[in-house]
Design a protein around this nucleic acid. Sequence first.
DNA 1: CATCCATATTCCGCCTCTGGAATATACCGC
DNA 2: GCGGTATATTCCAGAGGCGGAATATGGATG
Lengths: 126, 126
Amino acid sequence: MDLVQIYECLCDRTRLRLLNLLVRGPLCVCHLQELLGEPQVKVSKHLGYLRKHGLVQVRREANWRIYHLVERPTRALKANLACLQDCAQDDDIFRRDLKALKALKANADGRTGTCCPSPARTLPTP
Amino acid sequence: MDLVQIYECLCDRTRLRLLNLLVRGPLCVCHLQELLGEPQVKVSKHLGYLRKHGLVQVRREANWRIYHLVERPTRALKANLACLQDCAQDDDIFRRDLKALKALKANADGRTGTCCPSPARTLPTP
DNA sequence: CATCCATATTCCGCCTCTGGAATATACCGC
DNA sequence: GCGGTATATTCCAGAGGCGGAATATGGATG
């Protein structure tokens, strides 16, 4: 994977938000959609973009698709994701996303949402 | 300056090569052009892009324009430039560029090139 | 099989980036 | 002022990203 392609993946806010969440662990599409508050097609397309370029992978789990970072990232990818995590601390949107993720995980049991079962129960980190 | 805009600046190979050189110190356009081996218009346009987005600055020096990184980069920019320097070590193109830069600086005095005087003599770091 | 749910894909219009050729600008030395 | 050198800008065509609406896929369930 080429350095330029990594940056091409990083130069869209939606994709940055997705990655910022996925570095914390795998998530299904519906949760990502809920966390970002973006329409399904948008989330799905950007996830497809990231997958096509080798930054994330999918696995099937019942009715859902669980996205997670590639298992063996390049040195360059690892470095840039670390950098992103660092920079994200300074930005409201990313902080809000992480907060929402925390809340989602806290509500893991006794969850009332209509979407897939909680990540805590069904989605152990790969 | 926004994180996304930083990545937009980084997602072109020519710009990455320029930045990889400029983190080592200021350079005039003709030297950059010579180091990259790219046509003038291409180098100039990408430098303009980087300037417009606040990653680099220019100053005039006799007949030449000396480009250098912004004096007070954002935390995010600093982090990403450091990351780029790190990642560039793994890539042939960037290594070759740095090698050529070293050679250029070594030839500073007694230089035979047709272009501007050596960076060592005329271009102290800002 | 019919249906529902989660997700992906296609289609379309808009906009931006990119590279190159040609041209313009701006300074220099004579 | 003139010619020359260094650099920027404009004009053009091709390529691709982006968002949204509509549609398709595919597993699960009754």
